[in-house]
Amino acid sequence: MRLQRQEPAERLVKYLEAIRLALGELLEHDPRVFLYGQDIAGTFGGAFKATKGLAERFPTRVLNAPISEDAITGIAIGAAQEGLVPIIEFQFADFASIAFNQLVNHAATMHWRTGQTCPMVARLPVGGTPGGGPFHSQMVEGWLTHHPGLVVVAPSTVADAYFLLKDAATCTDPVVFCEHKYLYYHLAADFDPRRAEHLPMGRAAIRRSGTDCTVVSWSGMVHEALKAAEVLAGEHEIECEVIDLRCLRPLDADTILESVARTGRLVVATESWPFGGVTAEILAVVASEAFQHLDAPPQRLAALDTPIPFHPALFAAHHPDAARIAALVLETVSF
C-alpha cells in the first residue's frame, strides 16, 4: 500500500510520529520528564526511531541504557521517588519479562505499601509482524494486568498514541504503554492534537455503533475488528458495535456491560494468548454481571496456544484476523 505524500500542511501523521510528537512536547514542557532506554540517544533515535531528533534537542534528558531491563526499571522507580517522571523504553515488549519483578513487585506495589507514588511510564513495542518470531512479537498485557497497581494502556489510533502517552506521563501511577509495532509505520491519519477527540485514560471508545453484537478489542486488533464489521454490515446486514478498550487496566467494564445490554452478544478478539488475560477477564465480568442480557454465549478469539511462529504463513494462522472475527460474530448472531 502506498501512503500518499501530501503537502506538509496536510500531511498524514503516522502512529510513531504521534508518539515522537508527544515525547517531544513532554520533554519541552515538563522538566521532570526524561527518557531512558537502549539505543534511544544520539542521532540513532531508537530501534524504531521513536526518539529520533529528541536527543539533539534535549541532550541531558535522553539517555542510553545498557541491556539491563531490571535496572532500567529500577532506576526509573528510584528517579520517580526523587520527583522525576521517567519514560523508559523497552526495545521490544518481549524483553519486559526481564523487568517483570521491578514492574509488578516494586513499581506496582509502591503506593499501596508505602503511600509514595511511583509516576513513571514504560513504553513497550508490542504485537507481531511477519517474521518477527517468538521474542519480537508478544502482546504482554496478559501478565502485566494481573498485578494490582499498574496501569496498562494500548492505543490503537494515531490520536490515542499521542493522547494516552501524554496522559500516562501525568498519571501518578506507573503506566505500561503498549505501542503496536506494526501500527508504527502502517497507520497514518490526518491528526491535529488541537482538534482530535481526547477521551480520558481509563475510558473505552466505541469506534462503531451497532445493535447486533458487541465486539471488544484493543491495539492492532481493533482494525481487524472494524474490517470485520464492515464486511458483516455489507454482506450480512449485521451491525457490530466495536469497542476499543484503549486502557486494559483499569478495565472500563461499564462501557462493555452497557453495550452488551444493548446487543445481547459479545465477541472479544485479541492477538494475545487465550489462557487468563484480558479476554478471560471480560468474559468473566460479562457472564457474571450481564448474564440476564445475554442472548448467546459470550465468545472470545485469541492467538493459538503456542509461542508465536516465525514463518509468515504460520504467523498469519496463529492469530485472529478480520475474517475469523467476522465468522465468529456470524456464528454468535446465528445462535
Partner: peptide
C-alpha cells in the same frame, strides 16, 4: 527507600534516585 524482598532490586532504585 522501602525495601522489597527481591534482593538486588534496591541497587537500581538507588541508582535511579541519584540519577534523578
Amino acid at each position: 527507600l522501602a525495601f522489597i524482598s527481591h534482593l538486588g532490586a534496591m541497587v537500581p532504585a538507588t541508582v535511579g534516585a541519584l540519577l534523578g
